[in-house]
Amino acid sequence: MHNLYFAGVDVGSLSTDVCIIDQSGKVFSEMVMPTGVNGSEAAERAFDASLKQADLTRTDISAITATGYGRASVAFATGKTTEISCHGVGAHQLFPKTGTVIDIGGQDSKVIQVDTHGRMLDFAMNDKCAAGTGRFLEVMANRLELDLDELSNPLNIKGESAPISSTCTVFAESEVISLLAKNTPREEIVHGLQRSIVNRIWGMVTSIGIQGEVTLTGGVAHNRGLVALLEAKLGLSLNIPDNPQTVGALGGAHIACRAYHSTLESSTT
């Protein structure tokens, strides 16, 4: 039997991510590109780049799941599923003992409980305040004149952290300005910012609870300092995917594959 290929296209607020797999789940391409202002163009661009990487053409792909906040704009998709379900399935594929997924993306963050098939059982989502999202870190990095990588430095968890009391980006930004004016060391401010995100995540975790292993997804999983703080707060070690931004797309590709086969089954029975 020839290979069947499936794709997930995750149009996020900041990045558009594509993943292509075959029916055995082997990954052929993972692509992360900026979304920019036009989600549908970003999807086309990222998908084409991903096909090129996998050395495939559009006709080779049997089913495509669109996900992410721009999922409705992916014209070439064969199905659409929320990023909440996709992150659950994707995280479960990478770490089969995953019971809980924490996804911290650009404009929102989520805690998702999944069953033994990676299917979502319950979720909580924060989008009311930017603190708790990647965007918050970006605004602050800008203010601190640091790049995202510098903002990710792991710090000694016992080290000092500047008090950032506010959970609102606008207020937090003015707190940062006044801390800078007081010559507070940047590392302490960075630590304070990471802590305020962790506190927001903690709020969601307590509302739905933790079960099984915990996998962290979304771009903010690149932030090593935050990961260390979150692990300390949760009192466990987190599964961190090599490519945390493409976990939603990976889940989407698996959902496309499962949907393709279940349609096939139901049409042959």
């Binding site: 906040y69 599923t81 929320t82 909440i84 379900s85 990676g118 979502m120 499962r258």
Partner: peptide, 15 residues
């Protein structure tokens, strides 16, 4: 997204 995810959960839409 919240509403759709909730519906996916109720329907068990993810195979």
């Amino acid at each position: 997204t919240r509403i759709e995810a909730f519906i996916e959960l109720l329907f068990e839409m993810v195979p």
